[in-house]
């Protein structure tokens, strides 16, 4: 088995912040907007280095999305920053009309996604945002797994023309993907080849999937692990190729099973190659207060849960 080393826990939002800082130096057309969460989104460096290109809009996310759309007219590449909940559900119609339908080159960067926001509870823990965003025609949806990948994705989306939703989180998590690695939008990353079951994960659950593969390996089960950082457009070929080898699949995400990665995978398989699938995701529920670890355990979003679902889906082959 390949081994992946955690080079030290880091938050994905810092990957965004550091990527944005680098973009600020590299690309004079990059501008940033924030709705009173500059520190939380780690946008302080960009603000300090480029005050003229940083737009503090106050607690007014609807106006922020509209302004971002307007800034593209004249060639700017706007990056908006706020929590995932306020980046999507709160401003859905603004994104829909002024950004997606208007074909505007806006990068919607969303931190504190999912349960791992922790103690603030369900008002802030959006578990529906991937679904909301992937349903918008033309929207690219990315959910990165660690600091390095979030930084790489931040740099990559500046060079991609079109609206993008970039989802990341609050807690410090394992940092294991290559430093300064390449990021290819829409291209799955094969982390571990295997023959008995495919584990497809996105975001914080990619590391959990790797941990699950280790446990399965100890039980003599060969798990293939694929990091799907881009949920839309989905790398369907990578998924189909894998299940043609393994014959079953577990999807894992910090999101509702309705509307998330699992559902996109299920649609792909139903269409091209019907395959037993199990879902590691929240089961159509809101979150609640707690530490990130407690919440992931209670809602079954960790390596233990992935192992259980893997054993179950293998039994269904």
């Amino acid at each position: 088995m390949k081994t992946y080393t955690n080079t030290g826990n880091k938050d994905t939002r810092s990957g965004f912040g550091d990527g944005l800082t680098e973009l600020g130096q590299k690309n004079p057309n990059v501008v940033a907007l924030c709705a009173d969460l500059t520190g939380s989104l780690k946008m302080n460096e960009f603000e300090k280095n480029h005050p003229e290109r940083f737009f503090q809009v106050g607690i007014a996310e609807a106006n922020m999305m509209g302004m971002a759309a307007g800034l593209t007219i004249g060639g700017k590449i706007p990056f908006t920053g706020t929590f995932a909940n306020f980046s999507t559900g709160r401003v859905y119609d603004q994104i829909r009309q002024s950004i997606a339908y208007s074909d505007k080159n806006v990068k919607i960067c969303a931190s504190h996604a999912g349960l791992t926001l922790g103690e603030d509870g369900a008002t802030h823990q959006i578990l529906e945002d991937i679904g909301l965003m992937k349903m918008l025609p033309g929207m690219t949806v990315i959910n990165t797994c660690d600091y390095n990948q979030t930084k790489a994705a931040t740099l990559a989306i500046a060079d991609h023309h079109g609206p993008v939703y970039l989802r990341f989180g609050r807690p410090k998590v394992a940092n294991f993907t290559p430093e300064n690695g390449e990021f290819h939008i829409g291209k799955a990353v094969m982390l571990q080849e295997g023959t008995d079951v495919t584990l497809v994960a996105t975001g914080h659950l990619v590391w959990e999937a790797l941990e699950a593969a280790k446990t399965l390996n100890e039980q003599g089960i060969s798990a293939e692990v694929i990091n799907i950082h881009t949920i839309k457009p989905l790398d369907e070929d990578a998924i189909i190729k894998s299940i043609q080898k393994t014959g079953c699949i577990v999807t894992a995400e910090e999101h509702n099973y309705l509307g998330g990665l699992g559902e996109s995978v299920a649609r792909t398989l139903a269409q091209h190659n019907p395959t037993p699938q199990e879902f590691v995701a929240t089961q159509d529920t809101f979150g609640e207060s707690g530490t990130p670890e407690e919440l992931l355990e209670k809602y079954g979003l960790n390596a233990t849960s992935i192992v259980e679902k893997a054993l179950k889906v293998i039994g269904r082959k």
Binding site: N63, G66, M67, G70, L71, I73, Q97, S98
Partner: peptide, 27 residues
Amino acid sequence: VRIASGSLGQGLSVAVGAAQAKKLNGD
């Protein structure tokens, strides 16, 4: 046409963004 409109209340924000882009561009 530079922006979709119809769902009301969104145009002024877009205009503010475009106005800021003009300033950045020295336009």
